[in-house]
Amino acid sequence: MQKKYLVPTGVIARLDVWLTTEMNVTRSQVQKLIKMKQVFINDQEPKKMGDQLKAGDTVMVFETSQIPITKEKKINSIDLFSEIKIINETPDYIVINKPAGLIVHPDATVVGKKALAESNTLTGWLLQNYPKLDKVGEYVNRPGMVHRLDKDTSGLMVVAKTAASFEHLKEQFRSRSVIKKYYALAHGKLPIEHGFLNFLVARGKDGRMVARPNITEVTLKNVDSIQDGRVALTEFTVLQEYINYTYCDITLHTGRTHQIRVHFFAYNHPLVGDPLYFNKNIKREIDKKIGRVFLHSYHLEFHNQNNEIVTFAIPLPEKLKTVLAGLKSL
């Protein structure tokens, strides 16, 4: 049996990593298929497992009986729709609590209002419950969305309900006047109780985001003027120290892809539960049990249409509270 996969716009990733997700199988199974010359990129055999894919590439997979393909059991995002909580709703916007495991929006290969509404994403939930949102926003697959959270990050998001509200909120995110705070659990003991992480964030050759040393000190005043498009600034405060772990309060001053996760990884204190950014020499017993990244957006503050400051805050999910309860304090 053969199956064709099209790499969507915006994707730059390793062949084996990307196919693992697309086929919903294990990485070792994908690598065996590549070794047996059952995988082709644009009708050519890949040179290695980690060949880089880019938007527009066609990947052809010939499944063989010699390699049993066992689908991994994953939580269906649509099962998480019932866990989406509306924290506040006005004629202009909705503030929700997004559960971990829910993808925010589908990729560009999903087209048409019906397909988008049926997608197992936050986009699908929004279009099912607020059909008029299909006319709000810049991209049809991101109705009313002015920001995003990673799939395995939980917490607060605001979604615009009108075109005017969308522009109003978008400008606040662009100017970085929105206050976004997170709770996170990092591996190890942080060397200081309060600080800023200012590593430059860019996309690496394997599709992951990477942090690069910054030779110029980044501050809130000059963050826009240094290597525009790549500068990132993350502020952290230690809330509690545990044996081998540190619980932090984080303020996000810029909004790069995977910013907090990449910054803490570059700081040599990766977040607990992160499947992408971790150090192999760190014990990850809790990571394997938690089934998600220990990162929760708990505080969101912005100006409404009347230019009044509105603030929303939610507690840590029970699952993450249980993780903390099982740790030993220093």
Rank of each mutant, 00 (worst) to 15 (best):
L6I: 14
T9L: 13
T9S: 14
G10A: 10
V11N: 12
V17A: 03
T21S: 08
N24Q: 14
N24S: 06
Q29I: 06
V30L: 01
Q31G: 09
K32G: 02
N42A: 02
D43V: 00
Q44I: 00
P46G: 03
D51K: 06
D57Q: 02
T58I: 15
T58Q: 14
F62Q: 03
E63S: 08
I67Y: 01
T70Y: 00
T70L: 02
K71Q: 13
S77F: 04
F81A: 05
I84H: 13
I86K: 07
I87G: 08
E89D: 03
T90V: 04
V104W: 03
A108V: 07
E118W: 03
S119H: 07
S119W: 09
T121Q: 10
L122C: 06
K132P: 02
L133G: 14
L133K: 11
N141S: 12
N141L: 10
M145S: 12
T153V: 15
K161Y: 07
A163K: 15
A164H: 08
A164Q: 14
F166H: 13
H168K: 07
K170G: 10
Q172S: 14
F173N: 13
F173L: 13
R174N: 09
R174W: 00
S175P: 00
R176L: 00
S177T: 15
I179E: 15
K180E: 02
L185H: 04
G195L: 01
A202L: 11
G207N: 11
V210E: 02
A211S: 14
A211H: 09
T219M: 01
L220V: 08
V223W: 09
L233G: 12
T237N: 09
T237D: 06
E241V: 00
E241A: 00
Y245N: 03
D249E: 07
T254M: 09
T257A: 06
I260Q: 11
F265R: 11
F265W: 11
A266D: 13
A266K: 10
A266H: 10
H269E: 03
L271D: 09
G273T: 04
D274H: 06
F278P: 06
N279Y: 05
N281K: 12
I286T: 15
K288A: 13
R292E: 08
H296V: 01
H296N: 09
S297G: 08
N307S: 15
V310S: 08
T311Q: 15
F312E: 05
E318T: 02
K321R: 11
V323P: 05
G326A: 13
L327T: 10
K328D: 04
L330W: 08
